[in-house]
């Protein structure tokens, strides 16, 4: 009996282990990462880009998608980019890490959508820098150059990793969402408890009366004489500390929720 249970326990543990491995090992279903509806890129250019993207996938575990279109089905660049990424099976791993660059010729806008780990690596300021780099070639209709610039920026930032002090901010949370989040936060309860107990104690014990006399109440006017006053310097010490510079908003990754319910980061610019 004892043997049987331990065997079945082992079996359960083993299958959990397998499942975990499988989860980690799940790669993107979609291996077609450059989608050019407008035929701006030649086949050999697409092959080159795909080869670079494959190496990024293997090295950094980030899926990279490039979409060139002039039809966003009436969606905004942000929603189109998010949905394209979510509904076409992109993203690596459990949190669907990866990013998508949408070149929207309808609105002449470039949009970078991030997902999973890429949200943390590609902060608002990094995305903005990348887009500034891309806008130049795009304005001159150098689409392949734009894509190469994008790929090389992705590589260098992926290599640099998540910047120090990076944090996420949910940008389009509704007021109700924020309320439900503050309801769950412990500090609100602690502060409320301290204030309520503190004010009750202060009111209970301060009601007796206040001492309003001080050291000079009974002192005869002008009788105080300071006969000795010495202030002798003894020693000094200097402490040197390194200033931790947190460069404010630059480490911020703004996030929002897409129609599929997943979380995305990103940003866009007109060209």
């Amino acid at each position: 009996m004892y043997k049987k249970t331990s065997v079945s326990l082992l079996a359960v543990l083993f299958s959990i282990f397998i499942l975990c491995i499988a989860q980690i090992g799940v790669y993107a279903e979609n291996s077609n990462n450059v989608i050019d509806y407008l035929n701006y890129l030649t086949d050999s250019e697409i092959t080159n880009l795909q080869a670079d993207i494959d190496s990024i996938k293997n090295t950094y575990g980030l899926d990279v998608v490039i979409v060139i279109t002039d039809n966003t089905d009436g969606k905004s660049s942000r929603d189109f980019a998010d949905d394209f990424f979510d509904y076409n099976g992109y993203g690596i791993g459990r949190d669907y890490s990866g990013l998508l660059m949408l070149i929207n010729m309808q609105d002449r806008e470039v949009w970078i959508s991030t997902s999973g780990e890429a949200i943390d690596i590609f902060t608002n300021s990094r995305i903005s820098t990348m887009e500034d780099n891309i806008i130049g070639p795009l304005s001159n209709a150098k689409y392949y150059n734009a894509c190469r610039t994008f790929i090389s920026d992705v590589k260098s930032y992926a290599n640099a990793g998540v910047p120090r002090g990076q944090y996420r901010v949910e940008s389009d949370m509704t007021y109700a969402d924020k309320v439900s989040r503050t309801i769950k936060s412990l500090p609100v309860y602690i502060v409320a408890l301290i204030i309520s107990v503190g004010s009750t104690l202060v009111l209970s014990f301060s009601s007796k009366g206040k001492v309003t006399i001080n050291s000079s109440t009974y002192e005869e006017n002008g009788s105080f004489v300071l006969s000795e006053r010495r202030d002798d310097y003894i020693r000094e010490s200097t402490v040197k500390t390194k200033i931790e510079r947190s460069s404010g908003g630059s480490q911020k990754s703004s996030t929002h929720t897409s129609s599929s319910g997943r979380t995305h980061g990103g940003g866009g610019k007109k060209f």
Partner: peptide, 11 residues
């Protein structure tokens, strides 16, 4: 900087 302080007085 550290100082030794002394005060003497009467009232």
């Amino acid at each position: 900087k550290y100082y030794s302080v002394v005060r003497r007085g009467n009232a």
